[in-house]
Simulated scan of single mutants.
Amino acid sequence: MKFKSSFFLFFFLLTSVSFAYINVYPLSFDQRIDSMGGVKDFILTNTTNKVIKYQINILKNDDTNDMTSWTEIYPRTLTLKPGAKGEIKMYTRAPKGTVLGEYSTILNIKELEVPKERRNKKNSVDVFTNLKIKLYGYVGKLDSSISLKNIKVFKGKNISNIKLNGVLKNESLRRVNLEIVLADSNEKNSILISETKLKKGEEIDLSNLKVFKDSRDEDKNYSKLEYIYIYEKGAGKFLKKEKIGS
Rank of each mutant, 00 (worst) to 15 (best):
R32V: 10
S35V: 11
M36A: 09
G37C: 10
G37H: 02
G38T: 00
G38L: 08
G38P: 07
V39E: 12
D41M: 05
F42G: 04
L44Y: 06
T45A: 05
N46C: 01
N46I: 03
T47E: 14
T47W: 06
T48G: 05
K50F: 14
K50C: 11
I52F: 15
K53M: 15
K53P: 13
K53L: 13
Y54D: 04
Q55Y: 13
Q55S: 13
I56R: 06
I56D: 03
N57D: 14
N57K: 13
I58V: 12
I58F: 08
L59Y: 09
L59N: 07
K60G: 02
K60L: 04
K60T: 09
N61R: 05
N61K: 05
N61T: 02
N61M: 07
N61V: 01
T64F: 13
N65Q: 08
D66N: 06
M67G: 02
T68Q: 11
S69M: 06
W70K: 01
W70E: 00
W70P: 03
T71Y: 03
E72H: 08
E72D: 09
E72C: 03
I73R: 00
Y74W: 11
Y74D: 12
P75Y: 12
P75A: 01
P75H: 11
P75E: 04
P75F: 04
R76S: 10
T77A: 09
T77Q: 15
T79R: 15
L80D: 06
L80M: 12
L80K: 06
K81E: 15
P82L: 02
P82H: 02
P82G: 00
P82M: 03
G83M: 06
A84H: 08
A84D: 13
K85M: 09
K85V: 00
G86M: 00
G86Q: 03
E87F: 09
K89Y: 10
M90G: 00
T92V: 09
R93C: 02
R93E: 00
A94C: 06
A94R: 02
A94P: 14
P95F: 04
P95I: 03
P95Q: 06
K96P: 09
K96V: 13
G97L: 02
